[in-house]
Design a protein around this nucleic acid. Structure first.
Lengths: 244, 244
DNA sequence: CGTTTGTTTGATCTGAGTCAAATAAAGTGG
DNA sequence: CCACTTTATTTGACTCAGATCAAACAAACG
């Protein structure tokens, strides 16, 4: 009855059926739907595999589709008038990409790795929204979540030192991994130093220097390219909090 | 029919009845309601006058109410672990404050001036949402708007020089004034240099120096305290865009 | 009218940007 | 599979925008 219950009782999610297309018990759009509804969504949505560096959509494209990232990593970027890019966020398996009430997408979405994405046409989405009003609430929840995360990011970029920003970024990777149900200390990190820098409002050299410093202090390891191991999570989070 | 139409046709807003309590043809929550619905909301909402520096709510308070700022100015802030504050946004007459699907407010809301606010209990809001499903869509629209603005702010704070940030801030005041239907070159600016600095990720000294520089270049004037006159809007917006 | 709070301005310092060059890794086509 | 190109990362030297520290001034306030 109370439309806020969905958020108040996250433990209820465990009982929700999982969309076999989107695999999205985690964070996807379909989370609040029952099995019948899931079948309908499944039958209307298209799943595709795309290679790294594909554009899911571009800033300014008519926002005609909504996507769930089933497998892989993506970055969301805006192009500045002076040609530089600002990364406004990263997306992980289970995340929804491209839901907006605006007529066009407000940023580029580019895949960082080979990925599978689940695609839903806006017309179909509208029909689903009419049939399952709970979905509209779901979209609002996702939007609030994203807004809160963006405000958090604003604090990080606005007030923290370079190393603290990089530390906060590493923690956000840990958090994203936890959300996907893999609370593991070895994390995929498919973004380049330049991507991270554009996300944090730094230069790629400064990001590199910070990560090198963390490595030398024994806080992290990079066993292979595009993978970090968090050795001393405590030290990293203290630095991120500014308690250095 | 199409739930996105509300956003696609902003010109339709002119025909929407105005909430006499909230005065919110501009941006308020009640915008999409018809007269009958407005009467119901009016009878259930409370209007109060509050003095400058009152807290509308604090970060972490149970999010039991939603507010419309009828008259006045507010700032939204988050407190960092190290005690510094980040201003995540300013709010103007007509804006909604405190709508969230989270169980608690994610930031402080403090009034900058004597203000009138319209208050709605969450239980009443839930009832309204059930009765007027269009309101849920409205909340989603507002959330998307806010998200877009916050991402914009992220770009400003992450990538622009100090003067460009201050210029962008001034432009956002102009834009907010325009949204309230007063496209005027003399603007209320009730926030202190420290507030602006905390919003832009700068120090108050740097904000002061930037504004002084703009004044010396004849781009702005400050006829009285807490009021700016935009003399050369073009110069300011060129600087904000980084075309300086 | 004294006190508090906000603003301006100056002098100095420093964290992160810039420029540059050396590796290292990942593609790519023969 | 290997030479060759391209792209990503690291490291060093130098610079500068903006922070910090400090003090004078102005406005608001009780």
């Amino acid at each position: 009855m109370n439309p806020f219950d969905a958020v108040r009782s996250p433990e209820a999610l465990a009982t929700v059926p999982v969309c076999d297309r989107c695999g999205s018990r985690i964070a996807g759009l379909c989370q609040p739907l029952d099995s019948a509804a899931l079948d309908e969504v499944s039958s209307e949505s298209q799943q595709t595999s795309l290679t790294a560096h594909s554009m899911v959509f571009r800033e300014g494209d008519p926002a005609g589709r909504i996507f769930t990232l089933v497998e892989g990593f993506a970055k969301l970027t805006r192009l500045l008038p002076d040609g530089k890019q600002q990364v406004v966020g990263f997306r992980f398996a289970g995340d929804v990409i491209g839901y907006t009430t605006l007529p066009t997408y407000p940023f580029d979405a580019e895949l960082l790795t080979d990925s599978r994405i689940c695609r839903l046409e806006r017309g179909q989405l509208d029909a689903l929204l009419r049939r399952y009003p709970v979905l509209e609430r779901r979209m609002l929840d996702l939007c609030v979540q994203e807004l809160t995360a963006t405000q958090e990011q604003l604090v990080t970029v606005g007030r923290r030192s370079a190393e603290a920003r990089v530390a906060a970024f590493l923690l956000s990777l840990v958090e994203a991994s936890r959300r996907r149900g893999k609370p593991c200390t070895v994390l995929e990190m498919p973004m380049t130093r330049a991507d991270i820098a554009d996300f944090l409002g730094l230069t790629l050299e400064t990001v590199s220097r910070s990560l090198t410093a963390f490595r030398k202090r024994g806080w992290i390891r990079e066993p292979v390219h595009h993978r970090v191991e968090m050795v001393n999570l405590r030290a990293v989070s203290d630095l991120a909090e500014g308690l250095s």
